[in-house]
Simulated assay, not measured.
Amino acid sequence: MSPKGLAILGSGIFAKEAHLPAIAALPSGAGELKAIYSRSEKSASDLAQAAQEILNLAQRPAIYYDGDAATDLDALLARTDIHAVIVALPITVQPSIVRKCLAAGKHVLSEKPVAKDVATGLELIRDVDTAYKPKGLVWRVAENWELEPGYHAAAQAIRDGKIGKVNSFNARVVGYVAKDSKYYKTPWRTVPDYQGGFLLDGGVHTIAALRVLLPSPMASLSGFASQNQKHLPPHDTIHAVVRTADGVHGLVELTWGAPVPSRSEQAHGGISVTGQDGWLNIETVALDGGRKRVVRVTVATVTRNEKGEDVGEEKHVVEEESRGVNLELASFLNAIDGQDDGFGTPIGALSDVAFIQAGLNSNGQPVDLLKLVQG
């Protein structure tokens, strides 16, 4: 991996708590954080100070902010020593910033979701494919659940036939969003100007995990959406029945509208996949007092005697430390070097947005998910 000069655009919670540690985890010499951009000088300065501490830098990265031509985003993008940018800005701002960065000749890793809706995402993908991809510029969407080793371990168990032919699946997310939550207090999340609110921002993670797990893509959805908590407009809940291209069906429950913490804590959330010869369950577990998170996969397989009769089951548990953000950054930098592993594709991220959009608009009527992403 050749050395890359990096910049982070955005100074929010995830930039500090996820992207900075991911840069720190890169192999020595793979990437150097040279600059940070934010709308305000203070927020850019705060993240630069955190970067100096987390990355153990001799001096903090240069800061760029709006209001002065010498320090704005254009000035950052004019630097020839910055080869790639991580875009972690509000959802509706990202498409225009992705275009701007690519036009400046920078490779781009932009945070999920790819856009606020399918139409906006399709337009962006077509623009990039026409104007920038032929120039060798790389654009990837940062969907960390797509890279989580735990989901890949579960997918491998399915491919290896540990549970037999898949016949159904279930995904459940039950979230409680307090009004004093650090994520809720982010202004662009408090009054969202995009469909679905937390459903879009957070729900695409679960759909990306199902993309990794299921033997064929989800093809049809019929569901209902609602807003159950007044502080979570425009919607906070989706319940959907889903069918994949090869006929497997399942249930997907996504809600950030739990009325009290216990509803979330006792929901037994996660993903399960059932086959003819067993099933597996996937859950995220906090260990070491919350300092470490693992994706735990429990595989239960039927056992049979010499006559082929079912006599019980055997279980196997795999735990993989959560490190999807680290892996997505490394994958992005490898793609710049011409080593494309196929992850982080904008069209894959668009299918995640399509699922949420379909769930919000279905109102009980079937929606063709594959047709939706074709425009």
Rank of each mutant, 00 (worst) to 15 (best):
K4V: 00
L6M: 03
I8H: 01
L9E: 01
K16R: 11
A18Y: 09
A30K: 00
A30H: 03
A30N: 08
K34E: 04
A35P: 02
A35Q: 11
S40E: 02
S43G: 06
S43R: 12
A51C: 00
Q52K: 15
Q52L: 02
I54Q: 08
L55D: 05
L57F: 07
A58D: 09
Q59W: 11
R60L: 04
R60E: 11
P61F: 01
I63W: 02
I63R: 02
Y64N: 03
D66L: 11
D66I: 07
G67K: 14
L73H: 12
D74A: 13
D74Y: 06
A75C: 12
R79K: 14
T80A: 13
I82V: 12
V85K: 02
I86Y: 02
P90W: 01
S96M: 05
I97Q: 04
S110H: 01
K112H: 08
V114S: 05
K116C: 03
A119V: 15
A119S: 15
A119C: 14
T120Q: 14
G121Y: 07
D129W: 01
T130C: 03
K133A: 10
P134Q: 06
G136N: 10
A142K: 00
E143T: 11
E146V: 07
P149S: 08
Y151E: 06
H152T: 06
A154T: 09
K165G: 06
N167E: 05
N167M: 08
S168C: 09
F169I: 13
N170R: 14
V174D: 04
S181V: 13
Y183T: 11
Y184S: 06
T186P: 00
T190Y: 12
L199E: 10
L200Y: 11
V204N: 07
A208Y: 02
L213V: 14
P215M: 10
S216V: 10
S220L: 14
L221P: 11
G223S: 12
F224C: 04
F224Q: 13
A225V: 07
Q227V: 06
P233I: 04
P234G: 04
P234W: 10
H239E: 09
A240K: 01
R243W: 03
D246N: 06
G250K: 05
L251D: 09
V252G: 02
E253P: 02
A258Q: 00
R263M: 04
I271R: 14
V273Y: 08
G278L: 00
N281S: 15
I282V: 10
L287C: 04
D288A: 15
G289W: 07
R296H: 13
R296W: 11
T298P: 12
K307E: 08
K307N: 04
E309W: 11
V311A: 09
V317T: 15
V318C: 08
E320M: 10
S322C: 08
G324R: 05
V325W: 05
N326D: 13
N326K: 08
E328Q: 06
F332N: 02
N334G: 01
D337E: 02
D337R: 09
D341N: 09
G348N: 05
G348R: 03
A349G: 05
L350G: 09
V353M: 13
V353G: 09
N361F: 06
